[in-house]
């Protein structure tokens, strides 16, 4: 909890508190996505790892990015929340700051189509390159075409 107060103290105009109901968790909202790398650079001084990156699709306007950071020596959890524009989804990559963001960002790109500026190897990770659409977006319909997709051209 102390370390998240320090981080908030460093960027009083950028960060604001969001109430959290989870044990040990602090949620802070970053209101300017262009400052993401600066803030994550500061978080890195207090937290060991990027635990997960959860994206919530909130149509029609917003993709909500939740960067969860944890420590090995302490139990506190920090969730950094950033809202980005759903129509032009793009945000800075933090993969050169934290190695575990590499595959996480590729997965988010794969599932939501959010592009990460500065990522060295941004391509699909779980789905094939020619898969139609971004499955975890709320407007993605699971149709028969999707269910029976094989990736093979089976016309004779």
């Amino acid at each position: 909890m102390e370390s998240s107060d320090t981080i908030k103290g460093r960027f009083p105009t950028l960060l604001s508190d969001v109430p959290s109901t989870n044990k040990n968790e602090t949620v802070i909202l970053l209101n300017d996505k262009s400052k993401l790398k600066t803030v994550v650079g500061e978080i890195k001084n207090h937290f060991d790892i990027l635990f997960m990156l959860m994206v919530v699709d909130k149509p029609p306007k917003v993709f909500e990015m939740n960067y969860v950071f944890t420590n090995y020596s302490k139990n506190d959890i920090l969730t950094l929340r950033v809202n980005i524009d759903r129509n032009k989804p793009s945000v800075d990559s933090i993969s050169n700051l934290l190695g575990s963001a590499d595959w996480e960002e590729r997965e988010v790109y794969d599932m939501f189509g959010i592009s990460f500026k500065g990522h060295k190897d941004l391509r699909r990770i779980l789905l094939p390159e020619d898969w139609p659409g971004r499955p975890l977006r709320k407007d993605f319909q699971v149709t028969d075409e999707v269910r029976n997709w094989t990736g093979l051209d089976l016309k004779f």
Partner: peptide
């Protein structure tokens, strides 16, 4: 990776 991807997170929704 991705050979046994079943879309678990989508199925959950």
């Amino acid at each position: 990776i991705g050979f046994v991807h079943r879309g678990v997170e989508k199925m959950a929704e």
